[in-house]
C-alpha cells in the first residue's frame, strides 16, 4: 500500500497568485476603511451648508439688528411699555420671563393669583 502526498513548495505562478490574493484582501480592506473615514469626514457637511444658508439670509436682510425691527419698536410702544421704548418693563417681565427648577411651583402659584386679580 502506498501513500501519496503533495509536493511541498510552490511555483513562481503559485506564489504570485497567493500573494496577489493577499494583496487584494489588504487593498479591499484599506479602500473600505478609507471610504469609512472619508464618509465620516463628509457626514456633517450639511451642518456647514445649513449654517451658511442662515448667514447668507442674514446678509440679505434689510434690517440686521433686533432693536431696529419696526414691529419690535411697535410692540414696546403699544403694549409692553406704552408710550416708550423700555425693555424689561413690568409687563414684559410678567409675560416674557420665567423661573427654573425648584422655583417653578411658586411661580405657577403667582401666575394663578395674578390671573385672579386681573
Amino acid at each position: 500500500m502506498s501513500i501519496f502526498t503533495e509536493k511541498v513548495g510552490m511555483t513562481r505562478r503559485q506564489f504570485l497568485k497567493g500573494s496577489g490574493m493577499l494583496a487584494v484582501a489588504v487593498i479591499v480592506t484599506g479602500v473600505f476603511a478609507k471610504i469609512g473615514f472619508d464618509a465620516f469626514a463628509a457626514s456633517d457637511e450639511y451642518i456647514d451648508q445649513r449654517i451658511a444658508g442662515l448667514y447668507t439670509l442674514d446678509e440679505q436682510m434689510a434690517i440686521r439688528k433686533s432693536h431696529e425691527n419696526p414691529e419690535i419698536i411697535q410692540i414696546y410702544q403699544d403694549f409692553l411699555s406704552p408710550g416708550e421704548q423700555k425693555y424689561l418693563s413690568e409687563k414684559a417681565h410678567h409675560l416674557l420671563h420665567t423661573k427654573y427648577g425648584k422655583d417653578i411651583p411658586a411661580f405657577i402659584e403667582e401666575l394663578n393669583q395674578h390671573r385672579d386679580v386681573a
Partner: peptide, 16 residues
C-alpha cells in the same frame, strides 16, 4: 496563511 503560505498559494492557484 502566514504559516502555510505555499499551501495557500497552491490553493489560490488551483481555485482561480
Amino acid at each position: 496563511i502566514l504559516l502555510n503560505f505555499d499551501r495557500f498559494s497552491r490553493f489560490v492557484d488551483t481555485i482561480t
